[in-house]
């Protein structure tokens, strides 16, 4: 692994980030440092800018002010190597976004084979081992639509992991799932956390947050309102807005 990750520098660093959609400011003065192997959970009410923030981290969205550095590289409009940065950052979406015309195995092989320059045989081995890790190797030859939501999301995680990313981003990975499928996806994420992956998760699964998060970030109206360890966050919230939010989702 490159130095900047192991020597204690931030893998991801945001300084004074502002973002607007037209006149509407979606992110306000965001400052955030995330170190290697850290697990961050972002929560907050709907429309508070959680997705916007996490999507700025691999530049699916553009910010207008401030600096975002990812694995030491600054993200900006005219950068040449965005593809290289993105290859190192896995992302899991609320809606899975699997490629419906490819089988589960092909979904997982696509990244390594097409952009990492890994030959088909090795890509396949890696894909199979990742599918085993998310516990669905037997589904390898099916098409995504033949799978349940929970299975699809686990394929999506495996697809990202096949790229051997340095960071994984999750944007509400379980909120499109039926309740009985939530736990199988969370289990996968917990195991991934145990393996030492750097993870940034937008989620309202507070059990998961308590179990794995190093820090919890609470956002409201585009701002980071509170940032704390899980114990402090749940037992001793500082901000009134945090309290109101916790009251709502914990009851």
């Amino acid at each position: 692994m490159p130095n900047e990750i192991t020597n204690g520098n931030s893998v991801i660093s945001l300084k004074g980030v502002n973002k607007w959609y037209g006149d509407f400011q979606a992110l306000k003065d965001i400052n955030l440092e995330i170190k290697a192997k850290e697990k961050i959970v972002i929560c907050g009410p709907s429309g508070s800018g959680k997705s916007t923030l996490i999507r700025c981290l691999n530049r699916l969205e553009a910010h207008q002010e401030g600096q975002i550095h990812v694995t030491g590289i600054e993200l900006h409009e005219t950068m040449k190597d965005i593809d290289i940065v993105r290859q190192d950052i896995g992302m899991v979406f609320q809606g899975f976004n699997l490629f419906p015309h490819l089988t589960v195995l092909e979904n997982c092989m696509a990244g390594p084979n097409w952009v990492r320059g890994i030959d088909e045989k090795e890509a396949k081995e890696r894909a199979m081992s990742m599918l085993e890790q998310v516990k669905i190797p037997e589904q390898a030859d099916k098409y995504p639509e033949q799978l349940s939501g929970g299975q699809q999301q686990r394929v999506a995680i495996a697809r990202s992991l096949c790229m051997q990313p340095k960071v994984m981003l999750f944007d509400e990975p379980t909120s499109a799932l039926d309740p009985e499928m939530v736990s199988e996806v969370l289990e996968t994420m917990v195991e991934l956390a145990k393996s030492g992956m750097t993870m940034i998760c937008v989620t309202h699964e507070m059990g998961f947050a308590k179990q794995v998060a190093d820090r919890i970030i609470f956002m409201d109206e585009g701002e980071i309102v509170e940032e704390n360890t899980p114990e402090e966050f749940f037992n001793n919230p500082q901000n009134n807005r945090t309290k109101t939010f916790l009251d709502q989702i914990l009851t």
Partner: peptide
């Protein structure tokens, strides 16, 4: 979402068109 998932994997536009979008 298909574009976003492809970009998130680090695919370039031409590849996305050829392998992901056009086939669909």
């Amino acid at each position: 979402g298909q574009w976003e998932a492809s970009r998130a994997l680090g695919f370039k536009s031409g590849l996305i068109l050829r392998k992901i979008i056009l086939p669909q």
